[in-house]
Nucleic acid binder design. Structure first.
Lengths: 200, 200
DNA sequence: GCCAAAGCGGAACAGTGTTCCGTATCGTCA
DNA sequence: TGACGATACGGAACACTGTTCCGCTTTGGC
């Protein structure tokens, strides 16, 4: 897992990196610790565990990441961005837009099901998680919309499901997949995507 | 909402109703209070709220319902049973097994999306919720399997999705539907069920 | 080296689930 | 009817978690 410059340059809009070296180092430690703890205990892991592993106090954690969502975004931003960027490439390479959509959704599903509890928390209505929700949606929905539009234009699929709804559906289908070998989220998302096909 | 004899006769396997009138009355009060609180605050409502509304102590609540899942089952048992019983009737009445399946799933979806947070907790991996999970599955999966089998036998749908997987998928698609008017769980489940159609 | 600004740590608070046990109530039997 | 054992009651107390707050420390610029 690589998040070597989360605290650094490419922050989209948020606060500039601190001038103080210790602050930058702590933020880095927190991201590393969070990534490790997320793997073992899921994204719901106690905040204290993360602070302890990072060797910082709770106040420090909360200053750098006011909500758990900020921490999760920090840890997974790179992977989400990579997924977003894969969309146009797939569209160019795949035989049909529908095939591209299917492959892109596979990518998204693979990402989600390997992050213990992420799909669930993405769906959470708890206050404070809207930032997480919004980040994922801002980044991925436009890509999904592009693929969807292409498939609609090609006459491959029905037009009454918008990108947001589809993304939420796919995200929901991934909930719990990581902790239950009998539940095949990938196959179900395939069925869902198949169901988009124009009835004829 | 009617749960007038939850404490009474048709308990499948669990403890016999208490000989003491106060105990029976308290159990009844708790079910009523829980039903009311679930409507306003969701199935995640604080246990204390339920005990307070029922006018009993926490110990009493926990004695009658050792886990939140037991309480939820108590409150919704009748509706789950009704849904289960509707399956064969639909199969007999609908023009095709696939149509029956679709209607039955609509029934299930309507039930879930009107119970604030139920779908989410159904999917929860937290210890103690397995009883809830199991109750729903024990009751509904056989019905779903019957509908599914009929549709497969009729050659209407693919055979590689089992009832359990489908039920989980549908349940997942319902998560969050009650709190977000833009998310159309019913339509998505239709797409999913459409996707079951044999590719030709 | 000095100092204001920035950041740090963790105690303290608040909300929740869960346990436990002294006390009150019930149903029964003499 | 009165007494007695079984049953159930209530809520204080504990454990765990998220979140806030503030006195103290460290840093970087002068």
């Amino acid at each position: 897992m690589d998040q070597s410059d989360q605290a650094g340059g490419t922050d989209s809009g948020s606060a500039a990196p601190s001038r103080r070296k210790d602050a930058r180092r702590n933020k880095e430690s927190l991201l590393e610790a969070a990534a490790a703890v997320f793997v073992t205990s899921g994204v719901d892991a106690p905040v204290r565990d993360i602070a302890t592993r990072a060797g910082v106090g709770l106040g420090t954690l909360y200053r750098h990441f006011p909500t758990r969502a900020d921490l999760i975004i920090g840890v997974y931003r790179h992977q989400v961005d990579a997924c977003a960027e894969a969309g146009p490439a797939l569209l160019a390479a795949a035989p049909t837009p529908h095939a591209a959509l299917r492959q892109w959704i596979d990518l998204f599903v693979d990402f989600l099901v390997t992050k213990h509890g992420l799909a669930a928390v993405l769906r959470s209505d708890q206050a404070g998680f809207t930032a997480l929700h919004d980040y994922f949606l801002d980044r991925l929905v436009p890509v999904c919309a592009e693929l969807l539009d292409a498939a609609v234009t090609a006459g491959e699929i029905r037009a009454d499901i918008d990108a947001l709804t589809l993304m939420r559906g796919v995200g929901n289908l991934c909930i719990g997949a990581e902790s239950d070998p009998d539940y095949d989220a990938r196959r179900l998302t395939h069925v869902l995507v198949d169901g988009l096909h124009r009835p004829h």
